[in-house]
Amino acid sequence: MSRPFRHPFQESQFDIFEWYPKYQACLRFFVDHTQYNGPVQTVAACVNIKLPFQQMAGSSAPSSPSSAPSRPPGDAYGSVALVPYVRRLVATGFDTPAVLHAFFGDDWPEGVGPIHETERRNYLFAAKSDTWLKVKANYDMADGQTIPFLRPLQGVTEKEIVNAEANWSDWLAMQDWMLGPLAPPGVSDSRGPRAQGD
């Protein structure tokens, strides 16, 4: 019996087709509106990450939507990924609901929430895997966007820790190739049968 597909966001009720329109709404809100707001610009400056308008070519990047250059429809959205912003907010402790709402709008729990949850778990894994200096280097970005500081994960819940422990065990099992038919009992709930002759 083959192992059933397990979505990267780890939630059994997660539907990628319901999620994507919410993600797009967050992306549009961020690109069209909040990147030009003073509070979002302040947080971005504090955590040293460039906003999309700051990454545009030339030094005459607009600071407000009214002065933004005209673009083909969808052009700005295709060149912007929200994951780097979520990663930077998590690693600096700015990933509070208020800040996430300020960056990504009302749809953030459904549109960016699954990414936020995964990035919090990734940050826990990074801290467990390596030294502070190497973790910091992994959160640095090109073009002078080095992370100015790291903070321990803020507002951690017991559920997050339990989920992270379970996923860490899965990771360790994979490092030892203990997957599928070789998975030990309790590590994977979908052990396949061993090949004949094993």
Rank of each mutant, 00 (worst) to 15 (best):
P73E: 14
V47Q: 03
Q41D: 00
G38R: 10
G58V: 06
S66R: 13
Y77E: 06
V43H: 04
A68E: 03
V31S: 07
S63C: 08
P62E: 04
P72T: 13
A61Q: 03
A61Y: 12
C46L: 14
Q54P: 05
P72Y: 01
R71S: 04
Q55F: 00
A68K: 12
T34Q: 13
D75F: 15
Q54K: 04
Q55S: 15
A57R: 15
D75Y: 14
P52I: 01
A45C: 01
P65W: 06
G58D: 14
Y77G: 00
G74W: 08
A61E: 02
V31C: 12
A45W: 00
P65T: 10
S60C: 09
A61H: 14
H33C: 09
V43R: 08
L51P: 13
Q54C: 02
G74H: 05
A45P: 02
V31W: 12
V40P: 04
P69R: 03
Q54V: 06
T42N: 11
F53Q: 13
A44W: 06
S64Q: 10
P39Y: 13
P73Q: 11
S63G: 10
M56G: 09
G74N: 10
C46Q: 15
S64R: 09
V40G: 01
Q35H: 12
D32E: 14
A45E: 04
A61N: 11
A61T: 09
Y77I: 04
S60T: 14
V43L: 11
G74R: 09
G74T: 08
S70A: 11
P52R: 02
Y36L: 05
V43Q: 03
L51M: 12
G74E: 09
Y36M: 02
S63R: 15
V40H: 00
S59I: 06
A45V: 00
A44N: 12
A44R: 03
N48L: 07
S66M: 10
D32H: 12
V43E: 01
M56L: 12
P52L: 04
V40T: 14
A68C: 05
P72W: 03
A44K: 01
A57W: 02
R71Y: 12
P62G: 09
S60K: 13
S66D: 10
S60F: 03
T42Y: 02
G74C: 07
V43G: 00
N48V: 03
